[in-house]
Amino acid sequence: MIIKIVKMLLLLLMPFIMLGIIKKTKAFWSGRKGISIFQPIYDFSKLLKKEPVYSETTSFIFKLAPSIILTSAIFSGFFVPIIGIEFLINIDFSFVIFAYILGIGKFFALLSAMDTGSSFEGMGASREACFTTLVEPGFFIITASLCAMNHINTFESFRQFVTDLPLITKICVIVLAITALFIMILIECSRIPTDDPATHLELTMIHEVMILDNSGCDLAFIMWASGIKMLIISTLIASLIIPAVIPQYLTILLYILILIIISVIIGTIESGMARLRMSHVYEFVFVMVAIALIILALVTMKVFGT
């Protein structure tokens, strides 16, 4: 029971800590002291207290969307290994449900952005939709390959490496999958080099521009949801690394450590490189798909090949 509560708390609160650590890392690299790592939590609670302001041109979709986005993020969190899986749902091909529950959130985010009628938000929605379309096959290829490799049709396949594949293939697959999923974090959670979460320039934004009109608790929900999304994809990475056989409490500790490491890496990347030009972002997304295809090739060769 306690472990379940801990997992729930991790799912809900760890996103803020991750954001805090990223900010702290960026501050460190630019030679500043930086804000406290708990600052995102303070910001969140401040926003929660504020009343949202609605533009006259928006419809009910705009008011509905933040709740749906948040619900979809939390709900999809129940599907992933480590913090979710034994918790609620563990049926065959649950990763398809997982992807499309996240997809519903994305869909409403796009709708609510277009609902405002602002030219910026339409532009942001079109960019976001384009990237998602490209990321989705990559995600499915990776997950399905891992399933095929381990003959398990759920996210459990991320943790159970029961196959008789040679060790070298296994390591290759794991390293490639981690890389691809990491790129997926950078794309889906609008980090540099695909998007700059700190910019104020509407014309260059992807994700941020879609929520320009949201305010108060609506904005808080959306920010929370995107934090949770980052946590979920990071969890997939963690589940590839943490062995399934170790005790629960050790799993949790290792898990937190991996999340912190991922946040530090994201922060370091953001400090050391510039954002890509918009036309090159698509190429960057293709890198993830390409890696996914390599995984597929490796697995197919070994599992179904000679």
Partner: peptide
């Protein structure tokens, strides 16, 4: 540098 997201 800020506009291209080059923090340093």
């Amino acid at each position: 540098a800020g506009d291209i997201g080059y923090l340093m």
